[in-house]
Design a protein around this nucleic acid. Structure first.
Lengths: 230, 230
DNA sequence: CCTGACACTTGATTTTTGTCAAGGGAATTG
DNA sequence: CAATTCCCTTGACAAAAATCAAGTGTCAGG
């Protein structure tokens, strides 16, 4: 573990309010590991032995059933994942793999569960974090059920533009096939829909996104804070 | 509030571990209300001023966007809803309406937030509950993204049969149009799919469901604990 | 530099799903 | 008891999306 890892992790909302000795004991049991690109480090159905914290790199959460796969989320540093399974001591509902070489901290679930019973500030932070995760999935599900493919794409691209600093041009943070899966469609469908959105103020060249007419695209997306976030 | 309400609520997982005085203070601020059938008591976007507990009746959680509506969940006693919004002091992501005459307890969010900071057993229970809610939405979303309409229907009906005590025949707990919305399809689509499932061991007559060949239906549904629950 | 793997696109086609319209039937209401 | 409302079903049609297949281009590795 690198010396300034501890300092950075300490600042995460999940840990920043903890008592020092609880934090120290939690970190004593933790360790950091490097994973190469494309490695599946969590398989759905496995017992949730660890809480994971992404320090560097990029991770995909995905789910499988009957030979099919779908992307549930893409994570970037710094953030935790699969907190809920850890807490309920239940099997993971999702698998996780690295999209690029990643540095990841692993905290044994037993230690986690023991320590949040002692440290009420930590417990509060977990409550807050879990409530946020819950709301994120609900928003995503609302989008899937209420919007068409084109609308989901338009909303996603406008949202990314906003996150990138309200730019009119930026690069896609993930591969298109992954984006398609995340948005609940096939890669072919995404490809065609992107083309059809050229009539609505969008231009995509490779992974470069250009909002030629953000307002017009907005009429397609109909952004909503209760789906797309604040 | 009825005298034995308090006793019953006390037994809910969320409250059973609480210190008595915290519980008392929480309940002092709470009140019970009767709602007629079909009344929307929560609108998405409104501030989350209350935690709701369904004592009697039936409640639908639904979401709207651009003139469309979709059913997110159907609740039965005894259970809480919209805990996450309450905790984050954020707007409701979903609306709620009664499907039948219902008796509902309302606990002011401010009291809730104050008291779970004092009572660590209550905090633990909230963590557990939230983690469970999170996993429930994830499972539902997995079903929506990975299964076809027919598969979702088959899985739902087998699951209900199991919940009803592994019966080969039972009555649908909700109207078909609601079920269709919950499963992410139109009522027409559900109607046709049910008919097509007659070749796969299912018979539906009005709201009566008959599993003529559960094993065959199981081949369509391909039940999975990581989607359908245990 | 060649090669293979892989991401992406495109076309053709099928399947699935949604939409619109109409009608039956059960339950509720006046 | 009649009238109405609402749920459900069905048919015809349109739209959306998935599938299959082929071809292009990029990139990493030999």
């Amino acid at each position: 573990m690198r010396p300034n890892d501890l300092a950075e992790i300490r600042l995460l909302p999940l840990f920043s309010g903890m008592q020092q000795d609880c934090y120290d004991r939690l970190m004593l049991a933790a360790y950091v590991q490097n994973f190469p690109k494309g490695l599946t480090m969590i398989r759905q159905g496995d017992p949730a032995d660890f809480l994971f914290i992404l320090l560097e790199g990029q991770v995909e959460l995905f789910a499988s059933w009957d030979g099919h796969e779908t992307t549930m989320a893409v994570l970037r540093p710094m953030g935790t994942f699969i907190l809920a399974a850890t807490i309920r001591d239940a099997p993971y509902l999702m698998s996780a793999r690295t999209l690029e070489r990643s540095r990841i901290m692993m905290i044994p679930s037993t230690n986690l569960r023991a320590i949040f019973q002692e440290d009420s500030a930590f417990a509060m932070a977990i409550i807050h974090e879990l409530a946020g995760c819950y709301r994120a999935v609900v928003r995503h599900t609302k989008g899937l059920k209420l919007r068409t493919s084109r609308e989901r794409i338009a909303a996603y691209l406008l949202r990314q533009a906003h996150l990138a600093g309200d730019l009119r041009s930026y690069f896609l943070p993930v591969e298109k096939r992954l984006l398609a899966s995340y948005l609940g469609m096939t890669a072919e469908n995404l490809s065609r829909a992107l083309k059809s959105l050229e009539d609505d103020g969008l231009k995509v060249d490779g992974s470069r996104v250009i909002l030629t007419d953000p307002e017009k695209l907005g009429l397609v997306a109909k952004l909503d804070v209760l789906i797309d976030g604040g």
